[in-house]
Design a protein around this nucleic acid. Structure first.
Lengths: 208, 208
DNA sequence: CGATGTTTGTAACAGACGGTTCCCATTCTG
DNA sequence: CAGAATGGGAACCGTCTGTTACAAACATCG
């Protein structure tokens, strides 16, 4: 239990979390390993093995309780509390992120939104985040609130600059929604999302 | 060569593609396996092994030519031509997707954008896509253009409905940017993007 | 109450895969 | 020319995954 999880296991547990969250919203109370398998394309035996490694969460002949399994996985991933993140960029993408319920559902709080455009500063975007702050205050705010996760939703041209400011302020995990490649110190993780590349990957496997 | 690639290999090749595309934009002409490793966190030896399996693309003591390696990987992934996709939803997220250069960079063309809101229909969003079409015409347009990739950028509540229409029209690959779990036939791939879950995953590994 | 079907938990095994470590050939730099 | 940098290639090992099989627990139905 004290051992760290493998990347593979943690990834799969995250997928389960995603399915369970949605299943709960749809009012489902119980779910079987086979159902999770249908949604994730992960082998049902693998799912049971993953879960049984941490305890006996399911009931034979019945399945898993959605609620309790959600709690157990959150315990395993140690992501039960609230997490604060900073969002840089209040353009279309930033607005889409800020107004999505997807972060709040998982206990993630958008603690601050920044933009360098004076016309955006002070506006309220999304429902769960405060008003847009001036990028000049980024360093102070991020440092004061001890934020360690930053989301980059600015054009590629200013992505590196935003990254540098975040890193300077103590951020250790960056989600990059620009096309830019970001240079960061070794102790900072960058997750770059690139739908186009994922699409090419999917297309390859679609060929008969 | 006729053999299908492993999922792992194809994933890594896609990552290389992403790095190379960006490196080219930054004016880089040569790149070493070590540099690619720095950006992708993939073992440099692994990278060389992946590439050398398809031919001798690099020059010893020098590295790889960015341009030619780009072409080689595109050849391997068979994604050289133009691909048409359909985008459903012209809200903030849909607009962000349509106006991003990220798809065009990889030869992916947003052939049609749909929205059910009459106020949106006819507007021009993004620079590379035509004007917004009424969702009522989705089936006809998608079928006529032989589109096999659809992107869902609508609220969770209407995601399944949009999915059903796409599937009915022959779409085989769906990128889902809503929180909804989508039910699809077995021959349709769904790629659900969930930044919040990815974030929890990253947070787990960040703990010292 | 008993029979039957469903679902989890667990073990065992084979195959694939990734990381590592070598060593060598080639090229560039000074 | 000497040395550093870099890709090509082989071999090894441990880990992970998918699969199969089966027993135990539970539900359902008659």
């Amino acid at each position: 239990m004290a051992d760290r999880l493998t990347v593979g296991v943690a990834s799969r547990l995250s997928r389960y979390l995603q399915v369970l969250t949605q299943a709960k919203k749809m009012g489902k109370e119980r779910i079987s390993s086979q159902e999770i398998s249908d949604y994730t394309n992960i082998n049902a035996t693998q799912i049971r093995r993953d879960l049984s490694g941490f305890g006996k969460f399911g009931k034979r002949g019945v399945g898993y309780s959605v609620d309790s399994l959600l709690g157990e996985i959150r315990k395993i991933l140690r992501t039960q509390g609230q997490h604060n993140i900073a969002l840089v960029g209040a353009g279309r993408l930033g607005q889409a992120i800020a107004s999505s319920p997807i972060f709040a559902e998982h206990g993630i709080n958008i603690a601050a939104v920044f933009d360098r455009d004076p016309d955006m500063v002070g506006r309220q975007i999304g429902s769960n985040s405060g008003s847009v702050l001036d990028s000049k205050s980024l360093k102070d705010v991020v440092r004061d609130k001890n934020i360690i996760v930053g989301v980059i939703a600015v054009p590629a041209a200013s992505a590196q600059e935003a990254t540098d400011e975040l890193v300077d302020s103590g951020v250790k995990i960056i989600f990059n929604y620009s096309e830019a490649l970001l240079d960061v110190p070794h102790d900072v993780q960058v997750h770059t999302s690139n739908p186009a590349v994922e699409l090419l990957h999917a297309l390859y496997f679609h060929l008969a």
